Structure formats: C-alpha cells, structure tokens
Simulated scan of single mutants.
Amino acid sequence: MSAGDRKSPENGGKGQNSPFLSLARGATNVLDWSGRIIVAACLASMFVALLVNVILRYALGSGIPWASEIHAILLPWLVAGGLVIASARGRNIAITLLSDLLKGRALLGLNLIIQAIILIIAISVLWSSQPILKASQFQTLSTLGIKQVWGYSSLVYAFAAMALIAALNLFRALSGEDVANHDPQHASLS
C-alpha cells in the first residue's frame, strides 16, 4: 500500500489521506470558523444595540439614533456567515432523493456535478454583483455615516467562500472522498 492509498480517518475510511486533502479540509474548517465568528459577533452586537436602545427608551424616553441602522450593516454579514457555515458543513438546502439512490461512481459523478454547479453559481453571483458594490460606495447611512458598501461586501465574503469551498470539495471528490455527508445522524440539524 503506497502513501496515497491510505484511507482517510476524517471521512470514515473513505477516500485517500494526503497532505493536500488535509489542507483542503483545514481550509474548509477555517472558513467554517470564520462564519461562526462572524455570526456570533453580529448576533451579539445586534442584541446589545437593541437591548441598550430599549433600556434607554424606557429609562430616558429616547434611544440610540443609530440602533436601527446598525442592522443594515450587520444583518447581511449574519446571513453571509450562516451561508458559509452551511456550505462548509455541506448543510445547504438540498433534495437528496437522487443522491440517496446512487452509489459508487454514479454518486461521485453527481457530487462532482453539484460542486461544479455551486462553483459556477457562486462565481457568477460575484461577477454580477460588481455594479451593486460600486453603487453602494456612494450610499451612506444617514445616522451612522457609514457607506453601505460595508454591508454589501458580505456578498463578496459569502460567495467567494462558497466558491472556494466548492473548489475544495471538487478536489476532495476527485480524490475519492465523499463530500456529501450521507449519514442521517450527522446530517440532521434538528
């Protein structure tokens, strides 16, 4: 058995274990953690701003003027972080009927097609969002004075990360790793 033939312990013994596969898994984990950090920071910031605003409204009769505008920046980042987490964990919304029926090379082919489609869609969203990003550089939130491009840049983060994850998953699938988690125990978030 050569070094490239060793089975991957990270994937239940399916697929090869190589430094490049480990690097691909590590990069996906880094993107997963970046999404987690962004989601936690956005949720905490929005909650604290809302809580302080409510307390000030009841205590002083007037709240923080920018408390309603901060969500225009943080909510898109919250959604983007969630997209990256779901993509990194393979938990995107999916219909698994066909993949549940297929085995072996047919399943590998389906996984390759799915990852290629995700990659193409993510890159086309990045490409087509350029005019929106350029226009948002000239829009400013009235109270905060922050350019709206900071909120719209979450689009670049989310879809660039999704494209990178899809490319890494393509590489992993071509190496024989099952990138679609078919274990119902680990696939369900309920």
Rank of each mutant, 00 (worst) to 15 (best):
S129Q: 00
S18Q: 13
Q16M: 15
L51R: 10
L51P: 12
A116Q: 10
K14Q: 15
S2A: 14
N111T: 07
S99T: 10
L50N: 14
A67R: 08
N29P: 05
T28N: 06
T96C: 05
V84M: 01
I117E: 04
L102Q: 11
I120M: 09
S129L: 00
R25V: 01
G109W: 05
V52A: 15
V39T: 07
S34W: 09
L110R: 05
L112Y: 01
I93A: 09
Y58A: 13
A88H: 01
R6P: 12
S8P: 09
E69F: 00
L75Q: 07
A44N: 01
W127E: 03
D32S: 03
A122H: 00
P9R: 14
W66P: 10
S129H: 00
A27P: 09
L50Y: 10
I113H: 11
C42I: 06
V52I: 12
M46N: 07
A86Y: 00
I38V: 12
S68N: 07
A40E: 08
Y58M: 14
W66C: 09
L60A: 08
Q130P: 06
R89E: 12
D32I: 05
V79C: 00
I118K: 02
S68P: 01
N29V: 06
L78C: 03
A67T: 11
G12M: 10
S18F: 09
R57C: 09
G104C: 10
P19T: 14
Q130L: 03
I117Q: 04
L31D: 13
M46L: 12
I73Y: 10
K7Y: 12
I117D: 07
S22P: 05
V48H: 07
G82L: 06
G109C: 11
I118C: 02
R36N: 13
L60I: 05
I117Y: 01
L101C: 10
I38D: 04
N92W: 01
C42D: 06
L74R: 00
L31I: 11
C42T: 12
L23I: 03
S62C: 07
G12Y: 10
L98H: 07
V48M: 04
S62V: 11
L43A: 11
W33Q: 10
I120P: 05
F47M: 13
R36F: 11
G63Y: 04
A86Q: 02
